[in-house]
Every structure is written in C-alpha cells, then in structure tokens.
C-alpha cells in the first residue's frame, strides 16, 4: 500500500482539536499530530469541534455554558491560525437554550460552518428544536454524536441513535443533519437501515470501527450521495476506510462525492 497522499481535495467532516483548558499537558502535541497526519493522508479541510473542556471542568458530553464558550473560542482561534485548512463547528449544549442559540449566532458570524451536538440531550427532545430551526434558517448542517443503536443508557452521556435523530429530522425537513461516526461503536447496521428513507440525514464514516461490510451497507442503504468522510479520534481508521473505498471500484464521481464534493455542498465550501 502506498503511503502517499491521494490527489484532490479531501474533507474530514468529523475532527476534534484540544486547547489549553482541557486539562491535558500534551494538547498542542495532539493538535500538531492531527495536522501532521492529515497532511500525510491528504486532508485539505478539517471541520472540527471542541467539546467544552473535554471533561476537565465539566463533562465532555454535558459541557457547561462557560466551557462551551471557551471551547468554541479556542476552535475559532485554531481555524484562524490555519485559514482554509481548519473550519469549525459551533458546539452547543441544548439544555441551555438561550446560550446555545447565542453561541450559534456568534460562531456563524465568525465563520464557523456547522453546529455540533454532543450527547447532552436526546436528539428527539423538543429542546433541540430551536437549534435545528436556527441551523435550517442559516443553512448549516448539524452534526449529532450518535450511539449506533440505543438499547440501554450508558454512563456520562444522554445517548441518541439513528431513530432519535430521524425523529428530529422529520420535524425539521429544511435542516440537514449528519449522523456522527458510523464506525463509532454499536450496531451500525441498525443505523443504516433506519436512515434508508430519511433524506435529510447524512452519514459520516468516522470512528474507530473498521468492520468489513460496513462500507458496502452504507452504500446500499444511504447511497453515496449522503456519505461523508471523516476521522474523529482515530485518523488511521479513517484513512483505512478511504483506502477500502478506493479499492471498491467505485466511479470516480462517487468517490469524489464521498471525499469532498458532498461536504463542499453541505458546508458551502469553495474548494
């Protein structure tokens, strides 16, 4: 296998960066590692979020308003430091509705390109309606952290699955959603079957999961026009899925759609 970057744009729709208030001394090293690996893989745009303090001063998936604001500001600073290469999602905690709406307004005005929902409130909950409505009004996508099939509660998250997100998407037909990290653990087939007839939910391919058959079912159920490439916390597995897609004899146009064209349309990127 060649390790050389492949030609053409490549958009990572599910990236994260750290900042100095995350409580980890190697935050800058981790950020540098992401950028260096991205260069090796051939990533031309990282669309990233920061989930508050990533657990340092409030829980990763239930970030306090203060941590949400600090994280979003840090995300904007990283994007400013890498113009064109890094773009930001506005992370919000919908339990604080007024704060969430204000953060979205602030972030989009400052050039952020999407909204990130962690696992602070179930996706089907009415508290997410103002967030989804504002995203639809502004024409930016909403990336929802997803647990692939919710069969029980898990610690430290109020998890949502594809059915929960589909309920929100049905109420907001003008909004576009991204189901986070199909490879992020859980019954990915459940998610893909659930999304077969939900046109305003896209699927990102990120996550540590690299199960064989996953990519084929993505193409079968969701279709290439709703697939987006990404890495999340394991860039090696993102690259592996990219390599596997390239080995599947897909039409160039299909592969380009997954690599960047669909993302460019969704996020209104000029590439």
């Amino acid at each position: 296998m060649t390790a050389a970057p492949v030609a053409g744009p490549l958009v990572d729709v599910h990236a994260h960066f750290l900042h100095e208030r995350c409580g980890t001394s190697d935050w800058a090293e981790r950020n540098a590692s992401r950028l260096a690996a991205g260069a090796r893989i051939g990533i031309t745009v990282h669309i990233a979020s920061i989930l508050g303090s990533f657990g340092h001063t409030s829980p990763t998936y239930f970030p306090s308003p203060a941590d949400v604001s600090a994280g979003n500001e840090a995300m904007r600073a990283i994007a400013r430091a890498h113009p064109g290469l890094v773009r930001g999602y506005v992370t919000v905690n919908p339990n604080y509705t007024d704060h969430a709406v204000a953060e979205i307004e602030l972030g989009l005005a400052a050039g952020m390109v999407g909204v990130k929902l962690a696992a602070s409130r179930r996706a089907s909950d009415a508290l997410l309606d103002p967030v989804a409505a504002l995203a639809a009004e502004r024409g930016v996508p909403v990336l929802q952290h997803i647990w692939q099939r919710r069969v029980r509660d898990v610690p430290n998250q109020e998890i949502s699955d594809a059915l929960d997100l589909a309920a929100l998407a049905a109420r907001h037909g003008g909004a576009r959603f991204i189901l986070g990290h199909i490879g992020g653990g859980g019954d990915w087939a459940h998610s893909l079957r659930a999304l077969a007839t939900v046109p305003n939910i896209f699927v990102d391919l990120s996550g540590s999961g690299v199960d064989r058959a996953m990519l084929e079912l993505c193409l079968e159920c969701v279709g290439p026009e709703r697939l987006l490439w990404g890495t999340d916390l394991t860039m090696d597995t993102g690259w592996a899925k990219l390599r596997a897609l390239a080995a599947m004899d897909l039409e160039d146009e299909v592969l380009e759609g997954i690599r960047w064209k669909t993302a460019a349309r969704l996020f209104r990127l000029s590439l």
Partner: peptide
C-alpha cells in the same frame, strides 16, 4: 483481525 475488520487499518496505523 480479518475477516472482522478491514485489513487496511493495520497498514495505515503502521504507516502513521
């Protein structure tokens, strides 16, 4: 971990 996982993943992590 074939046939469960894409074998490409072991190679990409090695390269990185």
């Amino acid at each position: 971990h074939f046939p469960f996982r894409l074998p490409e993943a072991a190679l990409t992590k090695l390269a990185l």
